[in-house]
Amino acid sequence: MRADEIVYPTDKGLYCALGDFYIDPLTPVPRALVTHGHSDHARPGHGAVMATRQTLEIMAIRYGDDFTANPQIADNSTRIGTVTVSFHPAGHVLGSAQILIAPDNGPRILVSGDYCRTPNPVCLPFEPIPCDIFITEATFGLPVFRHPDPLTEISRLLASMAEFPERPHLVGAYALGKAQRVIALARAAGHHAPIAIHGALKRLCDYHAEQGIDLGTLVSATDPGDAKLILAPPSAFASPWVQRFRDPVISYASGWMTVRARARQRGVELPLVISDHVDWPQLTATIRELAPQEVWITHGTEDGLMRWCEIEGIPSRPLRLIGYEDEPE
């Protein structure tokens, strides 16, 4: 059987015909396999959901325990229909996984979900899995995206805090993954004072702590005390919530901060390039390392990656999956 008869895009998301399941479906389906807990990949209302234990727990935190009638922890290899599926760390956020689909005879298809190769203190590192078809994201699929060392970026934040000790530093960071990573990086860079967090970040920060990831002392941004480092979801910056802080330095931790126009558009004073996605060198190096027969691109700036594949002589095609546009990054 050809690869594109085994797995193909539908209006509900990526579908595996041999196992009759969807991966990261956009609308409720009978059976879903979920790569990670970001809200555009993990949605509520599916009949059955298979994911890592941590992703299932994160979904329960976000949507309530009844987000599905039938949660299934992905353990080792599982037989579904006539394929074997297995989950492997993706290095993106806590619990994130790549899903390998191995038919009895036919090409091995790896759905990488969102992934990152930079070491990240809040999740397991990406595991390279040999495959025939590599299905990849291309969020940062242009050669201008070369994310600097995240510790260098966090040291810029701490330098600004030293330069403007009176001004609260408000860092915009998504609630799952980025917020905890920024906190862990700040700790690693020597910031031991309490860090204040917006209410929307609390439950996921607590969950990371329960999973053994040390985030140090966190206080509520409503009552920050002496905390001068405050984390909030980016949406909070457009709300009157910001008005309680006097003369804040507005910062934002995202791979998009590479591009100045993006930072200006958000009114950011201190852009921090910290990303949970592969940058261009990592993306292209991963493809070289896995040496698949074909590359399929789920979402992002696929034109750039397809051009690179063309130069390298690797067949590639876009899946043009919609619904992942507002990438939490």
């Binding site: 242009l142 050669p143 201008v144 591009v259 100045r260 126009a261 700036t301 750039g304 051009r307 690179w308």
Partner: peptide, 14 residues
Amino acid sequence: DEQLFALSYDFVGD
């Protein structure tokens, strides 16, 4: 590569 440059310039704008 010229194409990659053009795509990038289009995205970055400067």
